[in-house]
């Protein structure tokens, strides 16, 4: 890949579609492996993307995830159609969750998603407006 090339892919995420949850992250991981991104880095990108996918599918009314694979980093942009997070600082706290029991039964919804995304990325930004939606931007560098 030369310095100008980028691979951009966009995925539609449907609210409540748990069967498809993880499909986008899995595709991204395959692309990263094919272009020779180190396994540990590809893993962090895939984890960030997977937690983001799960969040949109669990909590929102649907949204999109756009991934830009660049020569030195990968950017993950996630945007959902609401309902938005009233208190982002609270949502970033480990263990804080509004997920119902049936989500917890699947092994998610324990209030670890957003903190995990932040932990796996080199840069993490989140903004949210109640009634509008939530936007997340993550950057994972290869070095």
């Amino acid at each position: 890949m030369n310095s100008r090339q980028a691979i951009t892919t966009e995925f539609k995420l449907k609210a409540g579609d748990f069967g498809a949850a993880g499909e986008a992250s899995s595709q991204i991981k395959r692309i990263l492996q094919q272009i020779g991104v180190k396994a540990e880095i590809a893993r962090r990108i895939a984890i960030s993307a997977y937690e983001a996918e799960m969040n949109v599918i669990i909590h929102s009314m649907g949204g999109i995830m756009r991934i830009e694979i660049l020569p030195d980093r990968t950017d993950i942009f996630v945007e959902d159609d609401g309902p938005g997070i009233a208190d982002v600082n609270l949502a970033m706290q480990e263990g804080y969750s509004t997920a119902p029991d049936h989500i917890r039964d699947m092994g998610f919804g324990a209030g670890m998603g957003l903190p995990n995304m932040a932990r796996c990325s080199d840069e993490f930004e989140i903004s949210s407006e109640v009634g509008v939606g939530t936007k997340i931007h993550m950057v994972i560098r290869y070095k």
């Binding site: 748990f18 993880g22 992250s25 899995s26 396994a39 893993r43």
Partner: peptide, 17 residues
């Protein structure tokens, strides 16, 4: 090792190597 048997367990294994 897990007691969960849903599809997310396989996804987690894939994503987490």
């Amino acid at each position: 090792l897990t007691g969960l048997t849903n599809i997310q367990v396989v996804r987690t294994a894939e994503v987490g190597d």
